[in-house]
Design a protein around this nucleic acid. Structure first.
Lengths: 302, 302
DNA sequence: CGATCTTACGGGATTCGTAAACATA
DNA sequence: TATGTTTACGAATCCCGTAAGATCG
């Protein structure tokens, strides 16, 4: 004795047109089928909702009251169904992405533009935060996708590699080392060295590498932001090493970047998501846009 | 591709227990049937609502949002269904009755008591108003039932007779006419006569009768209310003629009633309802209580 | 008598339950 | 391997449409 949404729609249609015949055509249903639908509904609610003679159809008082609430319910239902369908059809929705600043300010804008072209009605929020915060936000579910370095040991996170980001030297314009196309780490040791403060993940990575190779670069200046470093370098305070992702940002500030060989230090950049937490359609679409972009430019960073 | 209320209940059950197996027992359904129900629902909304592996069931972001609205919708639906069922089962509801004051203050209270014993949760409002207002209120739908005289010519009203109400003479205690058990109209002509003011329907009925019989009763006093007449009579100001329905009221005030013969003047009292406007269950139950009461006391008024 | 709702009945689709296959921790 | 979901399939149920019947204006 289960009531069906269709039965409610039938009831509303008959109540509105005050005629079984007219309502049945409007519902694309035969008259007898409509009769039975109403009968079953009345059986389910325990009484007559419509008083019908061969020449007239009238709502009972109970039917009048029921009609009000059913109309509201059906309206709510239609709207809800539409909402969730729009969500799946990517005609609506929102997406939170956390990304390290170097990525957020270099490659991400173009990806966002492509995404927006394809899904103009999805609201994307970018959180450009430090590596640790990217991981934390994805873990907490405050961002569905995160772009950062391989977290490696995280059991609850899935990592999809995008590319390897190399470290490059940054030098002020006119610096003597710029005579050469390619530098080695030890070349930098002869000049004042500017670096990010701990506990930046970039700083940690470089320190660990230097220690392993028994190299030494004594920081003369330290800063929090890559932008600050770029300004300090271009002001001639010294040299630095930054991810290639940020080289265009550096050069905008008047500094010059050079690849470093011997050894080539890279870090794996990719997309992290929560394991056992399915993605929204909007997020899945974003991963696909990213994958497509990655495919189109395999050697992504300059 | 029609969504069923059952499917929504299935979805909520699975989402709550995060297990198809547990939900299926709770829904009194086999596991496969539940699987298929969810699959069909997902097909209808256009995407996955639940991400399921053999060891875990998790809501997708769209599923999470959908769950919220579906829970609210189902709650509203259950409540609405309960409401209308209670209405039909006479466990809730309201009923407006319009009745002429003579009936409202004499026989109606006992009927209301019987009704309330049987349906204690139905809220009954009694409108004791003059005859014309009874008809008007029923016509306007402000009262489902009306107790009054036979309206006769009304096309849009149905009249169910209850009993014939006779007119009786009212006299002060110790009045000479009280020597006799039964009076005639012309006996009253020798005494001061108190009557209701026009256009009371009682007054009109009596006037018409008197005119037809070529009798004459000149009013010495006129009043609006039967209660006033009772007081005036018991104060010895004169005699009057009132419906037998109000005789107990008269006698409470110290007046004495006597039947009038030659001729016996009666009026048909009954229940009026709107034609082509079905009654609520509460109103139908009231008509049945009234009919039952009528059957139990065929010669209702004293 | 005519328009309209209801009942009767056969066909088709949907849904259900049992049993087997499948997948992951 | 063991638990839990999905697929396969036969059976029951439900729903629909056509045709005949009933009823009120």
């Amino acid at each position: 004795m289960n009531v069906t949404i269709r039965q409610l729609q039938c009831f509303v249609a008959v109540a509105r047109s005050r005629s079984f015949a007219e309502a049945s055509t409007r519902l694309h249903l035969s008259q007898p089928a409509l009769s039975i639908a109403i009968r079953n509904l009345e059986e389910a609610v325990g009484g007559k909702l419509l008083e019908r003679s061969t020449r007239s159809v009238a709502l009972t008082p109970e039917g009048t009251q029921f009609l009000q609430v059913v109309q509201r319910l059906l309206g709510d239902w239609e709207r809800s169904l539409d909402d969730v369908r729009n969500l799946f059809a990517l005609r609506r929705g929102k997406l939170d992405i956390a990304a390290i600043p170097t990525f957020a300010s270099s490659l991400l804008p173009r990806i966002l533009a492509a995404y927006r072209r394809q899904f103009p009605d999805i609201n994307v929020t970018v959180h450009d935060v430090i590596t640790e915060s990217v991981v934390e936000m994805v873990r907490a579910g405050r961002a569905e996708l995160g772009v950062t370095f391989d977290p490696g040991d995280a059991q609850d996170l899935a990592f999809t590699p995008l590319f390897r980001d190399r470290f490059v030297a940054v030098l002020p314009a006119g610096h003597p080392l710029l005579q050469r196309d390619s530098l080695r780490w030890r070349d930098l040791a002869r000049f004042p060295y500017i670096t990010l403060q701990r506990p930046s993940s970039i700083r940690l990575l470089i320190d660990r590498m230097l220690q392993e190779r028994a190299l030494e670069l004594v920081p003369t200046f330290e800063a929090h932001q890559l932008a600050s470093i770029g300004r300090m370098v271009s002001a001639g305070l010294g040299t630095s090493v930054v991810p290639a992702l940020s080289s265009s940002q550096m050069e905008e500030m008047g500094a010059v970047c050079r690849a470093i060989s011997a050894p080539v230090v890279t870090r794996q950049v990719g997309v992290i998501t929560r394991r056992r937490h399915p993605l929204s359609s909007a997020a899945r679409a974003m991963t696909e846009v990213i994958a497509h972009w990655r495919e189109a430019s395999p050697a992504a960073p300059s």
